[in-house]
Design a protein around this nucleic acid. Structure first.
Lengths: 335, 335
DNA sequence: GATCTTTATGCAAACGTTTGCAATAGGGCT
DNA sequence: AGCCCTATTGCAAACGTTTGCATAAAGATC
């Protein structure tokens, strides 16, 4: 078993100095003689000493913690299933750590209605990153109004008085449409729910590109949930009722694209000969599927870093604005 | 902006009681008259009051936090890519929350070498759940020896003096092999690295079933990393050098299976006619791939709950032992 | 040698809870 | 009236840091 926990005072006694000196030494305060500092740090290491974070946070009124708030499906309280969002969280985690902060993984269930109260007043975190397309606009709004340091992963073009980081969804939609057209598509189909802000932008970009080629007559929109199952079902249904009246698909996410692909393949629709498909996200699966999936890549690593940096800048009192990540078309076999 | 943060003393003053009464009231302590309790709780709600978690933790010597330690690839410091592990984390999150605890998402990079010191002495968490096949056996061992409350996601058959929760990998391997054989496979191939504990068990179960049918002569093992890319490359290479000298694959994970499937499809090997495939995990993609993937389902929801419950039991001083989760063969088109 | 800097350290208060113990009031009983 | 018992509340200490201010020692300047 473990020996009794050392407190700073014990360490100080061991070193023959006062607690204040020990504290300053561990924090590398230049007020303390270099030599003393090193001696105490060495001693701390030998004894596996660690500061009590609770005490430290109480005294400093800072936690060195960033909370990541994942919007759960409020109906089912389901955990997130979309691999893309989980990847974003994972990359945020790394970025947070690189800055010496810790990551509190939370969700709408824990945080309740008063996010500022829970996280900030409750001294659980210094700031919050919100991830995931929730219907929680109102809660975000009011937390932001209450002065909670906050950055949101979403569509950066959205008008809001809080900071948003996200991809250039409009351009993504445009690129996807241009690509489909360049492949000879005459009757492209958009698969997704444009009411959702990010997807709405993708749809706008998509439509703009389509319109500029004058083929908007033949362009269709199929509103579905952002899951592969929904895409699979929707495409199946559509093929049964309308037949194959489209020759290209732009799916609002890779998971959606893969669901659609499966439905098509089951009915022996050839990809990309009969239907060209473009997805969005570039999750790992996009490269592994057969045929591999052409898609618009979102840079999650950069996203994580940007989200964190902007939040920390806010904590430093800087004025911060929303910003947009570059996206990139990755051509593969499906188109 | 936000009004100045209320402290418990302020709330007490507003209610016309002492701090101690207010504290007890908020914690629903029966020492306080029911009516007073309700009045104070009501008042707290009205003023969006929340207790300072730092102060509370300092006083209580408890954090009500559980840390989840994800073993990063120590070489590349890459974030996790495997959708299955991320799903496990996500389900742990829910289970943790349901118990009224919070989740600190951490990794080997932050925790350093002295996990007990960092998490427990540092009062960052009350206990730790380790996820992910790290080479960190030694660190786990010593943290456990130091008395750190700990549960590990891994292979529960492994001899260890800490508590492990995981699926019945041996049985999973057996089921997979039996299934392949029942489909007429005569020359099955195992895809994965048996040095890894969990995969080793799957391989043992697989071999046992194969041997009982007397076809071990034709059985092959292809050692690869647990990524779809590695599987894709390995199968490609094998087809080129040996030709198609197997008629079934048991992949150590779904991602691996999907990588293998892609390589086969590109060479027009028919699935399941020429080669039957069984994966492991049952990630969302297994159902969406084409053909959909037969696989051994691991129950991540139950895993999350079991991991958390066992950890909390340890915190309550109970004696806890490793345990095994039931798995299930999910038959789909690939076999 | 007296005064002023500079350098290095220690003292003690404060951060906001929780809780053992003491205190008070009210009621029932003899 | 005196006593005990119960129900409810308050006082004050403690959790382990960090930091403004005071102090002490040593060197620099006149």
């Amino acid at each position: 078993m473990h020996q009794k926990k050392l407190k700073l005072a014990d360490l100080a006694k061991l070193a023959g100095v006062s607690t204040s000196t020990a504290s300053r030494a561990l924090n590398d305060n230049p007020l303390i003689k270099q030599e003393t500092r090193e001696r105490i740090q060495q001693l701390a290491k030998e004894h596996n000493f660690s500061l009590n974070a609770a005490a430290s946070r109480l005294r400093l009124q800072k936690t060195k913690v960033i909370a990541v708030l994942i919007n759960l499906d409020s109906e089912t309280e389901q955990s997130i299933d979309d691999p893309f969002l989980l990847k974003v969280v994972s990359d945020i985690n790394l970025a947070v750590n690189r800055q010496g902060y810790e990551l509190l993984l939370s969700n709408s269930f824990m945080a309740g209605d008063d996010w500022h109260g829970y996280f900030i007043d409750g001294r659980r975190a210094d700031g919050v990153i919100v991830v995931g397309q929730g219907k929680q606009q109102a809660l975000i709004e009011s937390a932001s109004k209450a002065g909670m340091p906050l950055v949101v992963w979403g569509d950066p073009k959205t008008e809001a008085d809080y900071v948003i980081v996200g991809s250039d969804n409009y351009l993504g939609g445009k690129l996807a449409a241009d690509h489909l057209i360049s492949r000879g598509c005459k009757a492209p189909l958009f698969l997704g729910e444009p009411e959702h802000a990010e997807i709405g932008e993708r749809y706008s970009g998509f439509c703009a590109a389509i319109a500029s080629k004058g083929i908007e007559e033949e362009c269709q929109l199929l509103k579905i949930d952002i899951t592969s199952q929904a895409a699979y079902d929707a495409i199946n249904l559509k093929l049964r009722s309308d037949g194959l009246d489209f020759d290209g698909i732009f799916a609002c996410s890779d998971m959606v694209a893969l669901g659609a692909m499966k439905a098509l393949k089951e009915r022996y629709v050839s990809i990309p000969n009969d239907v060209h498909i473009v997805g969005f996200d570039d999750i790992a699966m996009a490269d592994v599927s057969f045929p591999s999936l052409t898609t618009i890549r979102q840079d999650t690593k950069q996203a994580g870093e940007l989200l964190v940096n902007k939040l920390l800048a806010q904590l430093d009192g800087e004025q911060v604005v929303s910003s947009q990540l570059a996206i990139k078309l990755v051509e593969r076999q499906s188109s």
